[in-house]
């Protein structure tokens, strides 16, 4: 009975979302982002079907290896963020901040690789106006890169104003960025 009472009083008005780890708001965001990017990926594949020659020719100019390396960079950054949460849960603030710093640095590496990719495409004359492939490529990867930038800012804030809930929520945003990328990379760079 005490469990039922606890559930009723500890729900905080979030309903089923309160059953998820971390702040329920971050899960609302994760669900929304999966829906938005999911629609974007489906739209990308439909556009591919409508003009496969242009898509395959354009996609071949992308640096697929850089995209794969960036996947490794991002999942490694995710590990650092998760380890930061673990250390925060054990009251090790110094170690938590070290992991967050490493997560931010690897996030910056991701953005650096992305910049090199964009610079290469731009130098080859491939801009957002070139064709439908590049419009969608820049929109999807650019929107994702903006999430990386925002994630870096969020990680810095939760390392400064630290609590376990803050760390868990900030890291959840970072993992969401990771989650989107592991679908974005094969769909945009590899599917052909």
């Amino acid at each position: 009975m005490s469990d039922g009472k606890q559930e009723a009083t500890l729900d905080d008005g979030w309903g089923p979302l309160s059953q998820l780890p971390g702040n329920p708001m971050i899960w609302l965001l994760i669900i929304s982002e999966i829906a938005v990017f999911g629609a974007g990926f489906a739209g990308f594949v439909i556009a591919f079907l409508l003009d496969p020659e242009t898509f395959i020719r354009s996609q071949d100019t992308l640096n697929r290896l850089a995209g794969a390396i960036n996947t490794m960079v991002l999942v490694t950054s995710g590990l650092f963020a998760a380890l930061a949460v673990k250390d925060e849960s054990e009251g090790r603030t110094g170690r938590m901040r070290m992991w967050i710093l490493l997560a931010i640095l690897t996030g910056l590496v991701f953005l650096g690789v992305k910049y090199v990719e964009y610079a290469g495409e731009s130098a080859a004359g491939h801009t957002i106006d070139t064709n439908t492939f590049f419009t969608l490529y820049y929109l999807l990867t650019g929107f994702h890169a903006l999430h990386v930038i925002l994630g870096i800012v969020i990680l810095a804030i939760v390392a400064w104003k630290h609590s376990l809930d803050n760390l868990e929520t900030g890291a959840a945003f970072w993992h969401m960025v990771d989650l989107i990328w592991v679908i974005l990379f094969p769909v945009v760079y590899l599917l052909r």
């Binding site: 606890q6 559930e7 500890l10 309160s18 971390g22 673990k86 849960s89």
Partner: peptide, 12 residues
């Protein structure tokens, strides 16, 4: 306070 997931966090 929230439910048990939030209070224990049950981290990996």
């Amino acid at each position: 306070m929230k439910d048990s997931i939030h209070s224990s966090h049950n981290l990996p």
